[in-house]
Computed example of a mutant assay.
Amino acid sequence: MRKTFGDLVAVDDVSFTIEAGETYGLLGPNGAGKTTTISMIAGILERDGGDVLISGRPHGTTSTWGKKRIGYVPQDLALYPDLSARENLRFFARLYALNRTEARTRIEEVLEIVGLTDRAKDPVKEYSGGMKRRLNIGVGLLHHPPLLILDEPTAGVDPQSRNAILESVAALAGEGVAVLYTTHYMEEAERLCDRIGIIDLGLIRAEGTRRELVALVGELDRISLTTDGTQAVPELERLPEVRKISSGEGHIEVMVEDARKTLTRILATVTEAGVVVRTVEVHEPNLESVFLHLTGKALRD
C-alpha cells in the first residue's frame, strides 16, 4: 500500500499478511504511518497504490463486502453512554443487519468474551474506562469478522482493566480471528503478538516473531550462573550452542541464541564437570532493544 499527502509519503509500499487465528502487531513511533495504514486497511482512507485483500478478495473504500468482514475498534470510544452494554450491542447488531435471533445469541457470546455479562444491564456511563474499552471491542466482534483491527485498545486504562482486555484479545485466536493490533506498550506486543511489523517513516523496517526480530540485530540470550567453581568453562566452550563465555570467582556467564532450548544442556555440562550451581538467571533480549536499534526512537516517541 502507498499513500501520499502532497510531498509527504506517509506510507511507502507497506505490505504484510495476517493469517486466521494470528495476532499481528504493527508497532511504530508517532508519525510512523500506523494510523494511515490502518485507515486504508479498514476502507476509511483511499489508497494511492497497492491492494488490500480480505479473504483473498479486493477491498477498498467502496467495498461493502469487505467492510462487513472487518471489525474496527478505534482509539476513541464509539458507544452510547446512556444505554446499557446490552442495548449498545443490540443497536450495533441492527446496523450489522443481524436478525433478531442471531443478534440475541451473539450479544450474549460477546458479553462473555469481554467479561461484561454481570454488568450488561448497567448504563455505560457508569462503567470504568477499562470496561468501556472492553465493550468497544465487543461491538467490533458482533458480526463475526474474520479480521479485527484494534487501535491501541488499552490506552488510558488501569492495570487491572488492561489485563482483562489483553485476556479478551488473547482468547480471539481460539476463535480463528485475525487480529491487527497497535499499541504503545511493548510488553503487550511481546505477550499477545505472534508476529510483529516495525514501521517507521512509512516503511516496514522489519517483520517476524520476537525471536526472529531479535536475531536480525544480533542480540543473544544470556545465562548467568552462580557456582562454586569455574572448571566447567572449557567444557562449555566446546558446546556448539555457546557463542561467548565469561567467568569470574563463583560466576559463569554464557551467551547463546536460544536459552530456553539450551539451558538444560548447559546445566548438565556444568554439573558433569563437578561444579555446584547455586543460582540460575536467564536474560532474554526484548523488543524494546530491537525497536530502538531499527528506529532510533522509543515506542512512545
Results as ranks from 00 to 15, higher is better:
67 K>M: 02
288 E>L: 05
153 P>V: 14
24 Y>W: 15
205 R>Y: 04
150 L>K: 11
197 G>C: 14
129 G>M: 03
269 T>L: 04
181 Y>T: 07
139 V>N: 02
164 A>W: 06
236 L>Y: 01
44 I>K: 03
291 F>S: 12
118 D>V: 07
107 I>F: 01
171 A>S: 13
34 K>E: 09
121 K>F: 10
58 P>M: 06
199 I>D: 11
203 L>A: 10
158 D>W: 08
50 G>V: 04
12 D>L: 13
221 D>P: 06
301 D>P: 02
6 G>E: 05
133 R>T: 06
180 L>M: 14
255 M>Q: 15
44 I>T: 11
143 H>Y: 00
105 T>S: 13
176 G>H: 00
289 S>G: 13
233 V>C: 13
240 P>W: 05
213 L>H: 03
6 G>D: 02
70 I>C: 02
82 D>A: 12
105 T>K: 13
49 G>I: 03
89 L>V: 00
290 V>K: 11
194 D>V: 10
184 H>S: 13
39 S>A: 15
60 G>V: 07
259 A>W: 02
181 Y>C: 09
55 S>I: 10
203 L>E: 15
102 E>C: 00
69 R>H: 07
149 I>H: 01
31 G>Q: 02
67 K>A: 01
296 G>D: 12
195 R>T: 08
120 A>M: 14
162 R>G: 04
301 D>N: 10
134 R>Q: 07
275 V>R: 02
183 T>E: 05
85 A>N: 04
87 E>T: 05
299 L>I: 15
105 T>N: 13
101 T>A: 13
212 E>F: 11
61 T>S: 07
240 P>M: 04
288 E>A: 11
123 P>I: 05
24 Y>V: 15
113 I>D: 01
74 P>T: 05
179 V>P: 08
132 K>T: 09
29 P>C: 04
136 N>T: 04
286 N>P: 09
125 K>L: 11
129 G>Q: 13
214 V>T: 15
280 V>S: 08
243 R>V: 12
103 A>S: 10
253 E>P: 05
273 A>V: 02
213 L>W: 05
277 V>S: 09
257 E>C: 08
94 R>E: 00
266 I>S: 14
278 R>E: 14
9 V>K: 09
38 I>E: 10
95 L>H: 06
94 R>I: 00
239 L>C: 12
9 V>D: 12
115 G>F: 13
74 P>C: 09
168 S>C: 10
27 L>A: 06
141 L>N: 00
77 L>C: 07
126 E>Y: 15
162 R>S: 01
167 E>I: 05
274 G>C: 11
237 E>L: 12
245 I>E: 08
270 V>G: 01
11 V>P: 05
1 M>S: 12
155 A>P: 08
180 L>C: 12
156 G>Q: 12
34 K>H: 03
122 D>E: 15
177 V>M: 01
94 R>Y: 00
154 T>Y: 08
227 T>S: 04
40 M>F: 10
52 V>E: 02
189 A>N: 10
55 S>N: 15
292 L>F: 11
65 W>L: 06
271 T>N: 13
156 G>P: 07
214 V>M: 07
247 S>G: 03
192 L>K: 06
133 R>H: 02
177 V>E: 00
164 A>E: 15
